[in-house]
Each structure stands twice: as C-alpha cells, then as structure tokens.
Design a protein around this nucleic acid. Structure first.
Lengths: 333, 333
DNA sequence: CTGAAAGCGCTAACAC
DNA sequence: GTGTTAGCGCTTTCAG
C-alpha cells in the first residue's frame, strides 16, 4: 500500500529492458552485462523501487521468513533465546514471524498451521511442551523445524539444548556436598518433555542413589508469587535445598525465605535451572545452571538455515555445554 | 512447501463449484447458498485445505500482518509492551513480524523498509528514538504507524504513552518531600525523544523551581553493571535521590549501594522510571513509575487495527494513566 | 447466488 | 546476455 507503487515493470520500461533482466539484477544474478546492470540499478534508485516480497514469495515459493513459536515473550528465558535466533536470522536475511502461545486462544498446532499458511521457510519451536497435535502438524509438512532449548520425546526433530539430566545431577550434587539431605525439585510445568524425561528422572535417580527417600516434587510454580508462597510449604516439609525451573520463582522462594528471617544458603540452598539475567541481579545472587541461551538460539537458527537450503547437517541433536555457576545461594563447600 | 499442496482449485473441482465460490466460503462472504457452502466446507475439511496466505496477500493487497519495531527483545519493558500488542493482534487475527534494531546491522529506516516490502498492513514502533530517516520512511507510505511507549517530537504520528513529564515531576517531588535535595537523573539513552522532550525538561524545571541548582544528569546507563558502576560517582557527587530510566540499571545502583554498606532509602532514594517485574522482585523493592505497559501495547494495537480498516480514530495521541508505586527504595514521608 | 476471467508483482524455465 | 511467456494461488469485478 505504498503511495508510489513502483513495480518491476516500471523499472523495466524506464531502463528499456525486460522485467526478467530487472529481476536478475535485483536478485544478484550474474548473467547480466555490467552496463545493463548499471543502467537498471540507476533506474531502481531513481524510482526508489523496492521489490514486493509477497509477490516474490508467491512466485519463488520462498518467503525468507521463519516462524518462531514461543510460550511467553515476557519470560527472559525465551527472550534471550530469541535474541540469538534474531541475530542469526538477520545475518541470513530472514524475517521473523513470532507466535506466542501462552494465550488460551492459541494452541500449538494452530500456531504451526498459521505459520505454515504464511508459507514460512522454517520454524523454530521453543515451547516447552510439544503436544501430539503439534507433532502431527509438523509431520504434514516439508517445512523444516528446529527445537531450541527443548527436546521432544523421540528425538524426531532436530534440536539444540543442553544435557538437562547431567546439569541437574551436578546441581543436586553441589547441594549434597554442602550437607543438604532434604532436596526438592520445583517445577513450572510438570508435563514438559524436558521435565518428564530429564529433570524428574535425574532427580529420582539421585535421590535413590544417595538413599534420600522419595523427596519432594512441587509443580506449577511459575511466577514470583508462586515461589514466594511455596516457601512455607518447603519449610513444613523440611526442605533444605531446591532446584527451581522457573527463574523468577526461584527469586520468590529466596525473597520469601529472607522475609521469614531465614538464611540463604544456611537454612535453604537454591539453584535456578533456567537462569536469566534476573538470577545474577538479586542478592544473594542465585547459584544457577547457566545455559548458553543466546548460543542455543543462534545455533538453532543456523541449523535451520542449512535445513532450509537443503544443506547437509551432520548433527541433528546438538548439545551445548552449560555451566554450574556457584553463587551466594549455595555455600559451595 | 507443504507435502500436499491442496489449492483452491482442487477444492473447487471436488465440490463442483468455481474457485470464486470457494473463495467466498473461505472468506465468510454471505452471498453463498447454505447448501453449496456446506458442500464446499465438507470438501475443504476432507482435503485439509488451507489457504495460501501469500497468494491471498498478493491478490487482496492485505497480508493481515503487522510489523513490530523494537530495540531489544530482552528488555522486559518492550517484552511487556509486546505482550499487549500480541494479545490484541491475535484477537484481530493479525500475525506479527518482529524486527529488533539493537543490532548494528539494522537501522531503523531499514527495518521499516523491510517491513514495508513484506507488505505489512501496519507498523507499531516501540523504539525509543525516531531518526529522521525513519520519519521519512514512514512518510513515503500509506501504511499506518502507531508509536507505543514513546512519542515523536512533533506529534506527527499517532501514539500511546503516559505523561512522562508529570510522572517524573511527581517522582522528584516524592524524594523532595523525603528531604532529599541532591536529586539526579540517570538516563539510558540521552537522545530519545521521551528524554529530551519530557524527562530532561521536567527535571530541569523541578530543580529550578525548587532552587536546587543544576543537578546531575548521567547518560548511557543501560544495564545492570552500568548502574552498579555508577554508584561510586553518585556518592562523589553527593546524590541522595535518583530517577533511573533503565530498570536493571536502577537495580544495579541499588545493589551497589547496599554492597557499599549504604542504606536505601536513607542514604539514597531510587525511583525507577520504566518499571518491569524486576522492580518488584528485588529487595528492597524499588519505588517505581508504573506504566501500564500491557495496556499501552494493547491500546496501540487496537488503534492500529482501526487505522488499517480506515475507521475513524478520535484521539491520535493517547495518554494512559501511570501510577507512582511507593515501595522500599524511598521513605515516603 | 454463482461463474468467468483478469490480474496482484514477481520468478523461472525456455528460447533466441 | 536478454526477452518471452507461463504461471504462483488467490481475490475481485463483472456478467448473468
């Protein structure tokens, strides 16, 4: 709806060439003589011609657009992932259509279908859960998909993530070495693949191996106040060390403990499993499993570019290194 | 690139109608007899037909897509604005193409041009600065634009924001009433319209009216460590009260003060001017100018839908109410 | 209420 | 190297 609808046809006429030639110039095709190229370029600049990406998309069947499916924009975990994706997308000249699915009106499979209808060239899926309908939706298409910061049950889709199981075990071990024996796991969503297939098994195995009983798993602790309110329960249950999957919830537990006159890490140790900048901003700073979120996003997007170009991808399940950042919410003996 | 490329033509053939009729059914045009509509719908469902949005866009010149221009995805200020935008966009069935311009590779006007080439139906601009080239880019087009959480110098564009000047004056007054006399203004970007036209004038006028001298304005304090490092300078300058435009920077100042053994609010009062959830998570909680970020985004997007439909919009410059949330970083006498 | 036909602006064989 | 010509899949007059 530009005021001046300059089309490729206008340029062709003014430059006295065919639209095919203009198209070649626009797309950097080398099969154009230098002087005609220059002539066309001059007209393009004079007329301020800008190719209509929609028409290009229809004709070429490539939209240079990728879809992002993300649960919550205001969760820094996803925001930091997105940043990595965005930077690489820019590098490869892809636009990003973002679809947030936290809203009840939008289901995963609908989000996918919507993106597919827009003819995106690829999709990056960051939602922590991958419902069966979503899997089906992906399978109905040739459009490549990469999971970022999450995995699927059967490793059917390419993904970029960390070794959650190993990370959690290491975190539990840290608290164990600090003398903590009543360790708990605090989950946001208990049904995500990462949790059911990685975090919970890691926790249960650790508890078993160290003969610590069944332990405690708390679910649906998603925001600051959830965490804040959970603390009294943790006290009742005698918990002295927790891994928390939601960053702000970890802060909530921390604040609640301090407000209750407790000492962190003496009375309770806290490790946040999906650290964002928030973990390092609060005091005491939270010991954290630091995932390379930006890199996960960047690598996922890079992988997607390869997939979209039908390039060979040697590794479909990429695992990036994490770091267990020991801060003030554990005593780190 | 779907495996099964069902087109409107396939549906037409199977349903024994013309593609025009299928199109009418798909678009909810009422001029279709009920039984033909049903027949077409049945075929659509059987074939899993999904309209190609790119072809629709080319033919109808509407893409049901809006562009978002945002400086930084990982800044919760923008994330919270985006959430409001996203929810309303979903409601009106618009997709969102997000363009982040913090990257040096992407300038404001390029971002705009890119969105325009994609034939977006409208743009929401959240960047805190609006360079001349960006203004020019917008003027070359009929595509409606709404500024969210920011304003332009000449009120040329529709916008949704708060009264920054009034808010800051109120904040300064709070600290003044607490007995603070060496008040400072800590800016992220000193060149944004909101700062040059609203915050700085408000500050200067307040200082003048209360005969507090020239005061101190600090610039380019953008992240947590900027704020943290600034504190020693604030001490040197004897500052006992600050308004900070970057939320995480405010936390940085807070943490730095506490680490230096100071008392907040006794030694220094801190008010954050662009509060996000972070402001309420830290302890002591930050006194904040709480802007209704979600609402700003939602109202901006709603306004844009009207503009895109050529509906009448009575108010082009919308000002939403803010709240001065008195928390623990001021003594609130 | 339905169909025919002309594009939307561009790309991509295929000729020359 | 360059031009010609079909489409891409859909919407939208315009007839009837």
């Amino acid at each position: 709806m530009r005021k001046q609808e300059i089309t490729i046809y206008d340029v062709a006429r003014e430059a006295k060439v065919s639209m095919a030639t203009v198209s070649r110039v626009v797309n950097g095709n080398t099969n154009v003589r230098k002087d005609t190229r220059d002539r066309v370029m001059k007209v393009i600049n004079r007329l301020h011609y800008q190719p209509n990406a929609v028409a290009q998309g229809l004709a070429s069947k490539r939209t240079t657009t990728v879809g992002l499916i993300v649960p919550d924009l205001t969760n820094l975990y996803f925001a930091e992932l997105s940043k990595g994706i965005d930077d690489i997308a820019l590098l490869y000249k892809y636009n990003i259509i973002i679809t947030s699915i936290e809203n009840r009106l939008m289901r995963e499979d609908q989000a996918i279908q919507g993106l597919l209808n827009k003819q995106v060239d690829g999709v990056i899926y960051m939602s922590d859960s991958l419902p069966e309908e979503a899997v089906e939706a992906f399978k109905r298409t040739d459009t490549p998909v990469v999971l970022a910061g999450t995995k699927d049950n059967h490793l059917e889709f390419p993904s970029v993530a960390i070794d959650y199981q190993k990370a959690d075990t290491e975190a539990l071990n840290l608290m164990y070495n600090d003398g903590k024996r009543n360790l708990a796991l605090v989950l946001d969503n208990p049904e995500t693949v990462v949790n059911t297939e990685n975090r919970i098994p890691a926790y249960q195995q650790f508890m078993k191996e160290h003969k610590l009983g069944k332990g405690h798993i708390y679910s649906n602790i998603k925001d600051h106040s959830d965490g804040y309110n959970l603390y009294s329960q943790l006290q009742k249950d005698g918990v002295d060390g927790v891994i928390v999957t939601s960053d702000v919830s970890a802060v909530g537990i921390l604040t609640s403990a301090i407000d209750a006159g407790k000492n962190v890490p003496k009375d309770i140790e806290i490790i946040t499993a999906n650290a964002t900048q928030i973990a390092s901003i609060v005091r005491p700073a939270l010991t954290a499993i630091r995932q390379p979120l930006y890199d996960i996003g960047a690598v996922a997007m890079r992988m997607l570019t390869k997939l979209m170009n039908n390039e060979k991808v040697d590794e479909m399940q990429i695992e990036l290194p994490y770091e267990l950042l020991k801060k003030q919410s554990t005593s780190n003996n």
